[in-house]
Design a protein around this nucleic acid. Sequence first.
DNA 1: GTTCAACCTCTTTTT
DNA 2: GAGGTTGAAC
Length: 720
Amino acid sequence: MGDSIIDYENELNEAQYRAVSVTEGPALVIAGAGSGKTRTLVYRVARLVDAGINPGSILLLTFTRKAAAEMMDRASQLLDRRCRSVSGGTFHSLANHILRKYGDLIGYPDFSIIDRGDCNEVVGYIIGELDIKRKEIGLPRNSTIVNIISKSINKSLDLSDVLERYYSHLAELADPLRKIAQCYGDYKKKHKMMDYDDLLVNLKMLLVEFPGVRKTLSDRYRFIMVDEYQDTNLLQAEIVELLGGEHRNVMVVGDDSQSIYSFRGADFRNIMDFPRVFPDTRIIKLEENFRSSQPILELTNAIISRALQRYTKCLYTRRKGGVLPQVVVARDESEQSDWITEKIISLTRSGIKLKEIAVLFRSSFHSFDLEVELARSKIPFAKYGGLKFAEAAHIKDLLAHLRVFLNPSDHLSWHRILKLLPGIGQATANKVVGWLSSDVPSIERFKMYVKDQKGKMKILGELVGLFDLLSGQELEVKEMVSVVRKYYEPLMMSKFDDYPKRMRDLDYLEEWCAPFQSLEQFLTDMALEPPEVNRAPSDFAERADFLTLSTIHSAKGLEWKVVFIIHAADGYFPSRHSLHKDEELEEERRLMYVACTRAKDQLYIVYPETARDSYYGHVNLELSQFVRGLEWDYATVVRASDVYSECERSVADSRAGSGSVLTGRGFSLRAGDVLRHPELGMGVVLEVMGHKRARVFFKKQGIRLIDLRSVGSGQWILQE
DNA sequence: GTTCAACCTCTTTTT
DNA sequence: GAGGTTGAAC
């Protein structure tokens, strides 16, 4: 193959081509939503490899490993297999990789990675050890404490600054919290554990304190690319600087108006600061949107233009036509679910695949009601975001056995598996683990303990039996999982009433773990990049074509033909936690922007007018403030229960042949569109007559003639 | 002293 | 639906 099988210049637009052509030196690519960012990265990988650069010396840092794998895949299709050997993954997986190799230098010859749930348990344990009276001093829950500690690391702030800025009601607890944070750190070190933050902190420390290692790594990764740079935190930016500071072949790609992770320490100023950290940075803006139709893009531009922060670019599209986004008002949550279910059924009837449709929401519990309704209507779906597969109790239970087997000094997992057994609770578990760790804990030691009990705790014999099976011969990861499963399943069935569902998850886990070569790798991956679906799909039909339900955070970077945003009401989205904090409110606005920009052809913003609140009883809700006021100019407003469904069908035919016309407010209108008049309510356009008038059907008043030039401005009925 | 079922609350967003 | 707390039952 020659050196130019790819016609870069013709397959990319001008800005993309410029980005791809910068092969050396620092570059910042500001890539608007849907501007072909991934495509640009893929072509750049290909271009570098094409130019004879060793693929192993290219480092592609992305938000998930899947994203990296996908890009390498596409680059391979473009060029050839060499692109597969590019190093790619998340900051955390890179850190894991490097620390496994050099960890002994900083006192971590070997370690296990703990997830958020584990962190909470460690903190709970520490509070017990420190003999702190939880209630007396009003200590918050464990997860809040872990959040505080994590925030102080990710935002590079002192603990008391974090309290002052984000938890002012806890300001008095600075001292005990500091003490807890201290012990928490010690505990992790002692038990060879790293949480997500430690991976980054320790990687940075390694790079700072061991220039030799830094040099080696910097030589190895001669070309660095970072995707979603607006969602990196200061630590990550420093790591980039440390790795790339010397050769300066660093390209970061991001979009400041899509920054949605500041709650975990991300700082979109990283983008602004990049040119300062790397002088002579070339800045390239991708502003052509290839994804969304004109009307959708107009709405999203309007949403983001109301942000306090001025963003640096304006998106445009060459796509013409397309339907206006719809704002759908439902009476309550249940009507919202009904309407969406109905709408999805009618979309699939018209030939749209479920895979091309997504329902997005602010918080994962916002979809609970809809999930029930979808299940009832037998619409297969996969849910992303919220409680993850790996965090489900039964998965953690099963894994805990393997973790103990791999690392017998893992107290947390010992506790977990002991307490599963009938008759064994906190106290007994404490006793056993206490005895185990009076020396170096090991499986053998555990067996000794059980023997000494002389059948007093007969039940523990079962566990010994399991360990015998596990250590009997060299087992594949998959076999180990299946051995533990046989042991755990009866326990699971007595612990959970809904065990059939959980059983399917175990099936899925067995399948998922098959490719892993070592137990350590499997457990590490389970913590770092677990399967992202939070419920195992039940059969192949579901895997073939299913609807996507997703939190907006988990939908980042993806796109669908049809997007529904549900619970788009103040209090839900924006969440009521952020209503009174400007900074957080702005982040929610960007979140709405991200949500709307996922849509290619059809966008539905749905909200319930009323909700039941356990405190206030019935409450009225308003359309999300990020859209409120824009709906008349950039969308059509319909009632879920109203004329919409009947009339839409009745005019669908006439619509096909009729032209559209621009109204006074500058949006296009044609037969089938739905309008809302201040007094007459919802109406459906039956016929556009010239460019001044249209016949509109109103449910209550019947057919009226309206003046198109005044649509949206109050008086727009012409005559009867 | 210990276990465990029944109640309560409160639900951001993620590596 | 998961965490925490309480109080009955062993």
